[in-house]
Structure formats: structure tokens, C-alpha cells
């Protein structure tokens, strides 16, 4: 997982300016590369999966496909999001499968020079180190770049 994260890191650095979509989760600013995002939808109630962990909200119908929805906030170890219509579901493709991520709101599209990406400073949380692949400063706020592959591991490991 660590090696994989580094590789993605490299890719990001070698690229020219890349566009990222920034959004907020539990009041913190995060972003994902725009190419990783398939679509952004407004939150609508999902179907609960029995025996699911707290960060798995349930499943949703995306044009006939059943896709799981994760609460990013709970995934990052922050408080659980009280999902409402103001929230958004960011549909991304991980491991070749569509997955929905619940975020508070989408902010804007930002253009990032790869050289501006700073490595995640070591903090006392293993999860954070894994999930965040780098940070950048944008309009005087810190935006965290999410390492998608680490956040959404292979489905087997998600369920107990």
C-alpha cells in the first residue's frame, strides 16, 4: 500500500498543472484529482446494508448498478456525517468499480502545480498518513489530497 501511494505521488509530481476538485468533509478541505471523479450527485437516502461498519452508509442505485456509499468523515476517523440533501456524493472509480463518497459540499476546481504539493508531515495517526497523499496550500487554507486507493481498499476488507 505504501509503495503504491508513493507511485501515485510520483505521477502527480511529474504532471504539469493538474486540476483537482476540492470539497469539505467535517469542516476540513480535501481534494481529488478531477480525472478520478466520475460524477457528483446530490445526496439521496441510501439502502442500509445490514451488519455494515459505521463508515459504510449503504448502497445506491447508479443507473442500474449497485454501488456502495462511504462516509468519508467516518472513514477518516472524524465524526459521522448527518447526511442531508445539502450533502453530495462524489462517485469515483476505485479498483475498477464505482464507489460513492459522501462529502459535506463541493467547493471548487483548483489548478495545482505538482511542485507545490508538500509531503504529508508525520502526525501521530497511522490512518491519516495512509489516506492523505500530500497537502497543498490554496487561498491560505490547507487542502488535503486523498489517496483514493488507500481509502477504499478491496471490498473484502471493508466488511467484517
Amino acid at each position: 500500500m505504501q509503495a503504491e501511494a508513493k507511485q501515485t505521488d510520483q505521477e502527480v509530481k511529474h504532471a504539469e498543472h493538474s486540476e483537482f476538485v476540492s470539497f469539505t468533509v467535517a469542516g476540513q478541505a480535501f481534494c481529488l484529482k478531477i480525472t478520478q471523479i466520475r460524477e457528483i450527485r446530490r445526496w439521496s437516502p441510501v439502502t442500509i446494508l445490514p451488519h455494515a461498519p459505521a463508515d459504510v452508509l449503504g448502497v445506491m442505485n447508479l443507473r442500474g448498478a449497485v454501488i456502495p456509499i462511504y462516509d468519508l468523515s467516518a472513514r477518516f476517523g472524524l465524526q459521522q456525517t448527518e447526511a442531508s440533501e445539502r450533502n453530495v456524493v462524489i462517485v469515483v472509480s476505485v479498483h475498477g468499480k464505482p464507489v460513492g463518497l459522501l462529502a459535506e459540499s463541493v467547493s471548487e476546481i483548483i489548478s495545482i502545480n505538482p511542485d507545490d504539493i508538500q509531503d504529508t508531515p508525520p502526525v501521530d495517526s497511522r490512518n491519516t498518513m495512509e489516506y492523505i497523499q500530500g497537502i497543498i496550500s490554496h487561498d491560505d487554507t490547507m487542502v488535503r489530497i486523498i489517496n483514493l486507493d488507500a481509502v477504499i481498499s478491496a471490498p473484502e476488507q471493508v466488511m467484517p
Binding site: P50, H51, N61, G64, V66, K97, P155, E156, M159
Partner: peptide, 20 residues
């Protein structure tokens, strides 16, 4: 591929209202 095996659930379906 959506989630692992869930005790008590065989599969899912999409109902007429689009809900799963």
C-alpha cells in the same frame, strides 16, 4: 464486488422507485 458476504442477505434488487 460491492461488499463482502452479508449474513442474511442473498443479493440486492432495484425496485420500481429506483431504490435498492
Amino acid at each position: 464486488g460491492v461488499c463482502g458476504e452479508i449474513a442474511g442477505v442473498a443479493a440486492a434488487t432495484i425496485l420500481g422507485d429506483g431504490k435498492i
